[in-house]
Protein backbone atom coordinates (compact mmCIF):
# COMPACT_ATOMS: atom_id res chain seq x y z
CA UNK A 1 0.00 0.00 0.00
CA UNK A 2 2.95 2.31 -0.55
CA UNK A 3 1.84 3.68 -3.92
CA UNK A 4 0.65 7.29 -3.52
CA UNK A 5 -2.71 6.85 -5.30
CA UNK A 6 -3.65 3.63 -3.53
CA UNK A 7 -2.99 5.24 -0.17
CA UNK A 8 -4.63 8.54 -1.13
CA UNK A 9 -7.96 6.89 -1.84
CA UNK A 10 -8.04 5.45 1.70
CA UNK A 11 -8.01 8.89 3.35
CA UNK A 12 -11.69 8.89 4.40
CA UNK A 13 -10.94 6.00 6.75
CA UNK A 14 -7.28 6.42 7.65
CA UNK A 15 -7.70 10.14 8.46
CA UNK A 16 -11.33 10.34 9.59
CA UNK A 17 -12.57 6.78 10.29
CA UNK A 18 -15.29 7.18 7.68
CA UNK A 19 -17.15 4.24 6.23
CA UNK A 20 -20.55 2.70 5.57
CA UNK A 21 -23.03 2.03 8.33
CA UNK A 22 -25.94 -0.35 7.82
CA UNK A 23 -29.23 1.48 8.31
CA UNK A 24 -30.96 -1.79 9.21
CA UNK A 25 -28.63 -3.38 11.78
CA UNK A 26 -26.19 -0.57 12.58
CA UNK A 27 -23.03 -2.50 11.67
CA UNK A 28 -20.12 -0.30 10.55
CA UNK A 29 -17.71 -1.08 7.68
CA UNK A 30 -14.57 0.91 6.85
CA UNK A 31 -14.70 2.77 3.49
CA UNK A 32 -17.39 2.07 0.88
CA UNK A 33 -19.53 -1.08 0.92
CA UNK A 34 -22.58 -2.04 -1.13
CA UNK A 35 -23.91 -4.80 1.11
CA UNK A 36 -23.89 -5.14 4.89
CA UNK A 37 -21.60 -8.08 5.64
CA UNK A 38 -23.53 -8.86 8.80
CA UNK A 39 -27.22 -8.71 7.79
CA UNK A 40 -27.13 -8.53 3.99
CA UNK A 41 -29.02 -5.24 3.75
CA UNK A 42 -28.19 -2.99 0.82
CA UNK A 43 -29.29 0.07 2.73
CA UNK A 44 -26.02 1.58 3.90
CA UNK A 45 -25.16 5.20 4.59
CA UNK A 46 -21.94 7.06 4.94
CA UNK A 47 -20.97 7.52 8.58
CA UNK A 48 -17.98 8.16 10.79
CA UNK A 49 -16.84 6.19 13.82
CA UNK A 50 -16.78 8.02 17.13
CA UNK A 51 -13.31 9.35 18.00
CA UNK A 52 -13.26 7.75 21.44
CA UNK A 53 -13.28 4.25 22.81
CA UNK A 54 -12.05 1.85 25.48
CA UNK A 55 -8.71 0.04 25.37
CA UNK A 56 -9.31 -3.73 25.34
CA UNK A 57 -5.73 -5.01 24.92
CA UNK A 58 -2.39 -3.75 23.66
CA UNK A 59 0.83 -5.38 22.49
CA UNK A 60 4.36 -4.02 22.33
CA UNK A 61 5.67 -4.95 18.89
CA UNK A 62 9.40 -5.60 18.62
CA UNK A 63 9.44 -7.43 15.25
CA UNK A 64 8.41 -4.78 12.73
CA UNK A 65 6.94 -5.21 9.29
CA UNK A 66 8.73 -3.72 6.27
CA UNK A 67 8.56 0.06 6.39
CA UNK A 68 8.29 0.20 10.18
CA UNK A 69 11.83 -0.98 10.99
CA UNK A 70 12.87 2.31 12.58
CA UNK A 71 9.78 2.55 14.76
CA UNK A 72 10.27 -0.43 17.08
CA UNK A 73 9.20 -0.94 19.72
CA UNK A 74 5.73 0.40 19.07
CA UNK A 75 2.35 -0.28 20.63
CA UNK A 76 -0.66 -1.71 18.80
CA UNK A 77 -4.04 -1.54 20.50
CA UNK A 78 -7.40 -3.26 20.19
CA UNK A 79 -9.96 -0.58 20.95
CA UNK A 80 -13.71 -0.94 21.44
CA UNK A 81 -15.09 2.27 19.98
CA UNK A 82 -18.03 3.99 21.65
CA UNK A 83 -20.43 2.59 19.02
CA UNK A 84 -19.25 -1.00 19.67
CA UNK A 85 -17.02 -1.28 16.56
CA UNK A 86 -13.52 -2.62 17.07
CA UNK A 87 -10.51 -0.77 15.64
CA UNK A 88 -6.90 -1.94 15.71
CA UNK A 89 -4.28 0.80 15.41
CA UNK A 90 -1.05 2.03 16.93
CA UNK A 91 -0.90 3.92 20.24
CA UNK A 92 1.05 7.14 20.60
CA UNK A 93 1.92 9.79 23.23
CA UNK A 94 2.30 7.12 25.89
CA UNK A 95 4.53 4.37 27.26
CA UNK A 96 3.33 0.79 27.77
CA UNK A 97 3.38 1.30 31.55
CA UNK A 98 0.86 4.15 31.19
CA UNK A 99 -1.71 1.80 29.68
CA UNK A 100 -4.36 -0.26 31.42
CA UNK A 101 -7.17 -2.27 29.85
CA UNK A 102 -10.54 -0.48 30.02
CA UNK A 103 -8.97 3.00 29.99
CA UNK A 104 -10.43 5.66 27.69
CA UNK A 105 -8.57 6.47 24.49
CA UNK A 106 -9.11 8.89 21.61
CA UNK A 107 -7.97 9.15 18.01
CA UNK A 108 -5.36 11.52 16.66
CA UNK A 109 -3.86 11.73 13.14
CA UNK A 110 -0.13 11.03 13.14
CA UNK A 111 2.66 9.92 10.84
CA UNK A 112 2.48 6.18 10.17
CA UNK A 113 5.61 5.78 8.06
CA UNK A 114 7.93 7.40 5.53
CA UNK A 115 8.21 5.40 2.32
CA UNK A 116 11.75 4.32 1.52
CA UNK A 117 11.96 5.21 -2.16
CA UNK A 118 9.68 8.19 -2.76
CA UNK A 119 10.09 9.54 0.81
CA UNK A 120 6.34 9.94 0.82
CA UNK A 121 4.94 10.46 4.31
CA UNK A 122 1.89 8.33 5.17
CA UNK A 123 -0.45 9.63 7.83
CA UNK A 124 -3.28 7.88 9.62
CA UNK A 125 -5.09 7.65 12.90
CA UNK A 126 -3.47 6.41 16.07
CA UNK A 127 -4.87 6.20 19.58
CA UNK A 128 -3.70 8.10 22.65
CA UNK A 129 -4.95 8.05 26.22
CA UNK A 130 -7.85 10.48 26.65
CA UNK A 131 -7.00 13.66 28.53
Amino acid sequence: MSKPASYWRLRPFVYRLEGSRCVKCGHFHPLVRKVCRRCGSKNLERDRLPATGILRHFTVVSQAQQGMEKNTPFIVAWVEMDDGSKVVAQMTDCEPEDLKPAMKVETVVRKIKVDGESRLIFYGIKFRPSA
Binding site: V76, A89, I125
Partner: peptide, 23 residues
Protein backbone atom coordinates in the same frame (compact mmCIF):
# COMPACT_ATOMS: atom_id res chain seq x y z
CA UNK B 1 -5.48 -9.03 6.33
CA UNK B 2 -7.45 -6.10 4.83
CA UNK B 3 -4.68 -3.82 3.54
CA UNK B 4 -7.10 -0.90 3.22
CA UNK B 5 -7.55 -0.48 6.93
CA UNK B 6 -5.11 -2.72 8.78
CA UNK B 7 -1.70 -2.46 7.07
CA UNK B 8 -2.45 1.16 6.11
CA UNK B 9 -2.52 2.05 9.82
CA UNK B 10 0.84 0.41 10.47
CA UNK B 11 -0.65 -2.78 11.90
CA UNK B 12 0.72 -6.23 10.99
CA UNK B 13 -0.92 -9.64 11.23
CA UNK B 14 1.70 -10.46 13.86
CA UNK B 15 0.37 -7.63 16.06
CA UNK B 16 -3.23 -8.75 15.50
CA UNK B 17 -2.24 -12.31 16.41
CA UNK B 18 -0.61 -11.06 19.62
CA UNK B 19 -3.83 -9.27 20.62
CA UNK B 20 -5.92 -12.39 20.00
CA UNK B 21 -3.40 -14.53 21.88
CA UNK B 22 -3.63 -12.15 24.85
CA UNK B 23 -7.42 -12.38 24.91
Amino acid sequence: EPAEYIASLGVSQLAEAALIYKE
